[in-house]
Design a protein around this nucleic acid. Sequence first.
DNA 1: TGCAATTAAATCGCGCGCCATATAATTGAG
DNA 2: CTCAATTATATGGCGCGCGATTTAATTGCA
Lengths: 154, 154
Amino acid sequence: MICFALYSATHAMQQAYRPLLDPLGITYPQYLVLSVLWAAEAPLTVSGIGGALYLDSSTITPLLKRLETAGLVVRNRNPHDERMVHVSLTDTGRELKVRAAHISVCIFEKTGLDVDALERLHTEVSELGERLRTASKPELQTASRDASIQKVTT
Amino acid sequence: MICFALYSATHAMQQAYRPLLDPLGITYPQYLVLSVLWAAEAPLTVSGIGGALYLDSSTITPLLKRLETAGLVVRNRNPHDERMVHVSLTDTGRELKVRAAHISVCIFEKTGLDVDALERLHTEVSELGERLRTASKPELQTASRDASIQKVTT
DNA sequence: TGCAATTAAATCGCGCGCCATATAATTGAG
DNA sequence: CTCAATTATATGGCGCGCGATTTAATTGCA
């Protein structure tokens, strides 16, 4: 089955990121969350970030607290609806985008694939993920993810 | 980049396994370890299992303890070299192989792919993992994984 | 309006993964 | 033969992920 291949390739990928992210003091999941924030024009909510990454608040909340401790983001309750938390980048958090700009090229090189092959593989893996997600998720036949949720392009 | 696609597809895949593995009382990583043991003719060492799954003893040891508590495996020190631990299946552990036999077909169906497409994707993802692994790992230009280590075919 | 449903985050528990380190057994150079 | 290196496993700490539950705010229906 393809499952172990995915599993181990994902671990290998995270290991490939490690030497690039260590100098920035962030982990790969933190890099993903920051990528979502870097791409967003306005502050995002916890569930907005989680929706983009298919993660829920029990994963995102503690991660955001670590990013906040690191001085990269701030969190404030939405004054119009106190249930929600707006997550915004600090100046330091925005600056990190520049310091991280080289990373995707470095990873691209580590894959040893050309742009076309990578693009094809990306599409196939994304579609597989999408099918597995709808195959598992709640019985409500998901009408594809809500359009308001951003795509992650890391 | 393909990275997030891999990351989220892997999570989706593990979610797809969950309803199938829950009745057996095991997790996906435990299923992987058991798959390695099911495929082996003789008892394996901790590093033998870890080598097959690209995991080290700090991950495998506690997982094996849980499998041992569940009565699925037993661990004994190799009398000829007390540093090593031989991991063997119990009868219960062997019986579980039968109860798990349907799982790969169920997952195959959830992928929505035909055998050929899945085979191709499997090969490409495996090769990507392999390249990322050698790109990251120790400076010694790895001469491909030691032939004595089994392949995982889950 | 009143109050039960719903919604958004947060919290808790647990099982990974992995780094760094520790412990114990074996090997090998001198 | 000795003792420093090496090897195999185990342990501790930390950051995910996720199920289950909790807390707090908002909504909507009677």
